[in-house]
C-alpha cells in the first residue's frame, strides 16, 4: 500500500518535470521545478533547473547579439544609401550645363568619363536644352584625358538625340590622344560637328545665331515690302 502511494507521488513529480520542460521548450524561460522536498529525485530536479538556467542565459545572450548585429546591419545599409545618394549627387554636380549666350549652352566635361557618368551627362544636357529652348549646345571635352568605345558611343548618341530634339550639338576640345583613339576604335564621328577649341565652337555658335537673326530680320523686311505694295 505504502509502496503504491510512493510510486504515485513519483509519477506526479515526473509529470511535473515534464510540464516544466515543455513550457521551457515553448518559450517560457522563467519556468523552474523548484522542488521543496529533499530526497533522491530532488537532486535530479535541481540539476534540471540548473540546466534550464544555463540554457536560458545562453538564449538571452544570443538574442542580444542578434539584435546588435541587426542594428549594425541597418546602420550599414543606411550608410550605403547615403553613399549611393552622394555618388549620384556628385555625378550630377560634375556635369554642370550652363547657358552662356543667347541660344547657347555649354557643358564642360572634366575628368575621366565612364559609361554611367556620360549617360547622366547626356540626360542632363538634353533636359536643359528643352528647358531653356537653346538650339545650340557645346560639349567641351578639353578636360577629358581618354575615351573608350562605350563613352565615344554615348557622345555620339548625345549629339544624335540633340538633333532629334531639333538642335545642334558641337563637340569641342578633342585632344590628339582622343582623336587617335577614336579613329583606332573605328568610330565614325564624321556626322558630328567638331571644333578644335571651345573658342572656335563659341564663334561658330554665335555665327549660327547671327544667321538665324538675319533670317528673321529678312523675313520682317520682306513682309513690310509686301505691305507697301
Amino acid at each position: 500500500m505504502k509502496e503504491d502511494y510512493k510510486i504515485e507521488r513519483v509519477k506526479e513529480r515526473i509529470n511535473y518535470i515534464e510540464d516544466v520542460l515543455a513550457s521551457v521548450a515553448a518559450g517560457d524561460i522563467d519556468a523552474r521545478i523548484n522542488s521543496e522536498v529533499e530526497d533522491d529525485l530532488s537532486g535530479i530536479e535541481a540539476a534540471i533547473d540548473l540546466l534550464i538556467d544555463d540554457l536560458t542565459d545562453e538564449l538571452k545572450q544570443r538574442k542580444k547579439m542578434q539584435k546588435e548585429v541587426e542594428e549594425k546591419l541597418a546602420k550599414i545599409q543606411e550608410q550605403q544609401k547615403t553613399i549611393f545618394q552622394q555618388q549620384s549627387d556628385l555625378l550630377e554636380l560634375s556635369s554642370p550645363v550652363s547657358k552662356v549666350w543667347d541660344n547657347v549652352l555649354i557643358l564642360p566635361v572634366i575628368g575621366t568619363l565612364d559609361s554611367q557618368r556620360t549617360q547622366i551627362m547626356m540626360e542632363n544636357l538634353l533636359e536643359k536644352i528643352v528647358e531653356t529652348g537653346c538650339t545650340i549646345s557645346i560639349l567641351d571635352i578639353t578636360g577629358v584625358p581618354t575615351v573608350d568605345t562605350q563613352v565615344a558611343n554615348h557622345l555620339l548618341k548625345t549629339v544624335t538625340a540633340a538633333r532629334l530634339l531639333g538642335t545642334e550639338c558641337i563637340i569641342s576640345g578633342i585632344s590628339p590622344a582622343i582623336a587617335q583613339t577614336i579613329v583606332h576604335l573605328g568610330i565614325d564621328l564624321s556626322s558630328i560637328n567638331t571644333k578644335a577649341t571651345l573658342q572656335d565652337a563659341m564663334i561658330y555658335a554665335m555665327k549660327q545665331n547671327q544667321l538665324s537673326e538675319n533670317v528673321k530680320l529678312h523675313s520682317l523686311f520682306a513682309d513690310s515690302d509686301e505691305n507697301e505694295e
Binding site: 540626360e123 538634353l126 544624335t160 538625340a161 532629334l164
Partner: peptide
Amino acid sequence: IVGMQPAVAITLVELGLE
C-alpha cells in the same frame, strides 16, 4: 517634327532609329 521629349529622343537613338 516638333517638341520631342528628351527621353523619347534617347530611346529612339538606342533603338537604332536615328
